[in-house]
């Protein structure tokens, strides 16, 4: 499907969906609470079949966090980007690792780097950082006490 067709197909199903264009791929904003259901729909719909989650990350906008999911279909070769805005003080969103299992590791990484809490994640603990790490390194207000270059 082309970008326009994807937007049409999705707004047909969810008229309240906010879509952005201009980028390479269609962007959709979903509410954090709706995300797991929406994700399941993207994965299961025969005409969409987004079975490949190739990038999962988070962006810290200082006022809020944005989860960014890049999805692709190995059957139809179309891609979309789904974003969800989270509250910065208590970020929480449902996990999608039961839909795309690669999300398990990526969500653990986002958890330790941004402090986003993924509800229902089977094994949410630090993957890369030590267990006793304090702070969320990829947030904009994190200051590294040991900075080689500044020293």
């Amino acid at each position: 499907m082309t970008n326009e067709e994807i937007i049409a197909a999705l707004t047909e199903r969810k008229p309240e969906l906010v879509s952005e264009t201009g980028g390479e791929w269609p962007n959709f904003m979903v509410a954090a609470a709706e995300w797991p259901g929406f994700a399941a729909m993207l994965r299961e719909s025969e005409d969409l079949w987004f079975d490949y989650l190739f990038c999962l990350t988070c962006v810290d906008w200082k006022t809020h966090l944005t989860m960014v999911y890049h999805l692709s279909s190995t059957r139809y070769r179309h891609n979309i980007v789904v974003k969800a805005t989270l509250d910065r003080s208590a970020p929480e969103i449902g996990t999608v690792c039961n839909i795309w299992r690669t999300a398990e590791f990526h969500e653990r990484e986002v958890f330790e780097m941004f402090g986003v809490h993924f509800s229902d994640h089977p094994d949410l603990r630090n993957l890369i950082l030590p267990d006793d790490w304090v702070g969320y390194p990829l947030r904009k207000d994190y200051d590294d006490p040991v900075n080689m270059i500044k020293m």
């Binding site: 079975d51 989650l53 190739f54 190995t74 795309w100 299992r101 690669t102």
Partner: peptide
């Protein structure tokens, strides 16, 4: 599984 785990 390869697709679901995001293998490439």
């Amino acid at each position: 599984d390869a697709i679901s785990y995001g293998c490439s």
